[in-house]
Amino acid sequence: MLKKKSYFFSRAVGGLANSLFSMVFIWWLQTSTKSSFVVGIAEAIFSTTAALSIFYGPIIDHYSFKRTSYYSILVQTVFLFATTIAVYQLSKSYILALICAGIVSVCDEFFNPADRAILKETTANEQELNNLISKVSNIDQLVNVAGTALSGFLLTFLISANVMLICSLLSLISFVFLFYALKEIKDRPKVKKAEAKYLNQILNGYKFIKTNYFLSHYFWSSILYSFVTPAMAILLPRIAQQNGQAGLYSMFYISFMIGFVIGATIAGRLSVRVKTIGFTWIASAVPLLLIIFFSNNWLIFTGLIFLFGLMTSIHNILAESLIQITADDEILGRVLTTIRTSTSIGGPISSIVAGILLDSSGETVLILACGTIILISGLNIFRAVNEAN
């Protein structure tokens, strides 16, 4: 079965590699090109690979989740090394570097659903699955914080290409430990059935979602919520700038992540219920709306961001557990990638709209818009409670 210590170590090292890479690659583009347009292209590529996750589902379900995990990490490692070479030897070949980085991002979108599906295959009951997802989410958030801090430290002493080489080596180490962690898991290739058209295979995930009382509501709530996260990413540096301290931006981010980690720990001890998901979803709007009155007080603002991260984490972890509990194993990959698309599809539009709102109307309008979206999407989750009963 799953060797948990090796798996957790692989997840931590691989997550650190991804966190470092995303920070350092953007930094390299910004300092090398001096062009926000090029950086914007990179961000658009990463957002698009996530939004297109629905198209990866049939491929993930066609092969065993174990093989998909192996191959995606292996290919990702190869292209991390390729990106590093492009930066070392072809410092002006931004197109090649962007292509390699895009493939790295696609590999991550293949790995995550397959990895989550493996957790379901290797747990005995719903509570064990919820606890395991909670631990993995804790690891992910901790390494994100560590990667953010470490990237700044490393770039003080090393050039970007050297840090990317470190990322590549970390990814290789992650692959080795993942191979060992999954070694004793039985490789179960999918049973071959009459092949449907690729478009029909893609839509099977959504068709299943429509028939499930929780997933059908969660899908549309996720689409609404996908407009909130990118807007918050633009809001935080704006508030830090208004308070006249650039260091506050990292403090806000770390505060959110700490709240997320604590929320994940709490979620691991809770029963997976639709009502709890709906309640914490709506409750997360409260600290966000209170920000309107305390945007000029960085201390209270930091505390509210912490609470927002905590409540967001609880409903995220519980929802992810319920998704895996309710989805059929045969189409789990397609369900997870369809949900991934719903949680990402608003990103590109939201980033543009949020920037326009901040420049033209200030942060109050943007916060009200985000808070309203959260309340509406949370109330939609509560509709699933009535249907479940």
Rank of each mutant, 00 (worst) to 15 (best):
T280G: 01
N162S: 14
I185R: 00
L288F: 06
V365Q: 09
A50G: 08
I173G: 04
I282M: 10
S221V: 05
F65S: 08
S344M: 12
F219W: 08
I73T: 10
N131E: 14
G378V: 04
T68M: 15
A161T: 10
I239P: 02
F208H: 01
T265R: 06
T33C: 04
I254Q: 11
L224N: 02
W281L: 11
V24E: 11
Y213H: 10
T122F: 10
V272R: 01
W28F: 13
A233P: 08
T280L: 09
N125I: 12
V13R: 00
I26W: 02
L375R: 03
N386G: 13
I99R: 06
N138F: 15
F21I: 06
A101P: 05
V335Q: 01
K66L: 04
I300V: 14
L379F: 13
Q241N: 11
Y71W: 15
F46E: 06
I73S: 03
S137E: 14
S168D: 08
W281Y: 15
V104W: 10
I367M: 14
V191L: 08
V106W: 04
S360P: 03
S10I: 13
S361E: 11
G333W: 00
R273A: 12
G147F: 14
G303A: 07
G147I: 12
G259Y: 00
D187S: 05
G362M: 11
S255V: 08
S151D: 06
G362K: 10
G303W: 09
M311C: 13
T372I: 13
A283G: 03
N212H: 09
G152D: 03
G102L: 09
E121F: 07
F46K: 11
I239T: 03
T49H: 08
N138I: 15
G378T: 09
I317T: 05
Y56R: 09
S226R: 06
S313D: 01
S295Y: 12
R238K: 08
W28K: 01
C107L: 06
M311Y: 15
K275P: 04
V286H: 03
R188S: 10
E330S: 15
I258M: 15
N144E: 14
T49P: 08
S6L: 14
G147Y: 14
